[in-house]
Computed example of a mutant assay.
Amino acid sequence: MRLTASALLLTVFLALTARTAAAQARRSCGVDRWPVKVWADKDAALVDTVPVAATVQMLASLSVPELVYPENGRIRPHEFRTYRVRAVVERITVEDDGDWHLVLSEPGAPTLKLIAELPSPECATSATLATRFRAARDSLRRVPRRGTVDIVGIGFWDYIHNQKNGARNGFELHPVTLIVPIR
C-alpha cells in the first residue's frame, strides 16, 4: 500500500502529537520528588499524622539538610512530621502540574514567608488522598483575600531554586491536607 505525501505527513503528525500528549500526561502531575510531594513515597506510611504546632517563622528557620534529597523517600525528622500553622494566605497560583501554590506569611510579620501546595486531586494516588486534597481546596475557596487560616500539611524540603516568596531554606508544606479558615 502506497501512501501519498499528504497521507504520510498526516500519519507522522498524528504520531508526534500522540507522543507529545503521552509525554505531557506523564509530566502533568509533577516532577522533583513528586512521590514525596503527594504522600505516595516509600516512607509515606511512616509520616506522623498528628499535627505539630508550628509557625511560618519556625519552619522558615530550620537548617537545610546537607545531603542528597531522595526522589522517593523522606528526610528525617521534618518530612516525617505533619505541621499545623496559622498563617495569612498572601497569594494563590495554579502551577503547571495542577498544584495550588500558596504563599503564606506569618501573622503580623508579612515578610516572613512559606510556600504550601495543594496537589491536584487528579494526581492523588488513592481515593482517600483525592478526597483530602479536594476538601482542602474547597475550604481555601472560602478564605477571603489575605485571610488567615490554620493549615495542616506535611513537611517537605524543596530544592532551593530562587523560588519567589518561599522560605530561604526551601522548606514547604507539601501536601496540604487540611485548611480551616479563621477569618
Rank of each mutant, 00 (worst) to 15 (best):
R74P: 01
I75C: 00
I75M: 00
P77C: 00
E79P: 00
E79I: 00
F80K: 00
R81I: 00
R81L: 06
R81Y: 12
Y83S: 05
V85F: 03
V85H: 07
V85G: 03
V85P: 02
R86W: 05
R86K: 14
R86E: 13
A87L: 11
V88I: 15
V88E: 05
V89T: 14
E90W: 11
R91T: 10
I92C: 07
I92F: 08
I92K: 15
T93D: 04
T93R: 15
V94D: 04
V94G: 05
V94T: 15
E95P: 01
E95I: 00
D97Y: 00
G98N: 09
D99F: 13
D99L: 10
D99A: 13
D99R: 15
D99V: 07
W100V: 11
L102F: 10
L102M: 12
V103M: 12
V103Y: 14
L104P: 09
S105A: 12
S105R: 13
E106D: 10
E106I: 03
P107M: 09
P107C: 10
P107Y: 13
G108K: 11
A109R: 15
A109Q: 15
K113E: 05
K113Q: 11
L114K: 01
L114R: 02
I115F: 07
I115H: 15
I115Q: 11
A116V: 11
L118T: 01
P119K: 12
S120Q: 10
S120V: 02
S120L: 08
E122G: 10
C123E: 02
C123W: 02
C123V: 03
C123Y: 01
A124I: 13
T125I: 04
A127W: 13
T128K: 13
T128D: 05
L129H: 13
R132P: 01
R134E: 06
R134G: 03
A135I: 07
A136S: 11
R137I: 07
D138P: 04
R141S: 09
R141P: 03
V143F: 08
V143P: 02
P144A: 03
R146M: 05
R146I: 01
R146Y: 10
R146W: 09
G147W: 05
V149R: 09
D150F: 09
D150I: 07
I151S: 03
I151V: 10
V152D: 04
V152I: 13
G153V: 08
I154Y: 12
G155E: 06
Y159F: 07
Y159C: 03
H161N: 14
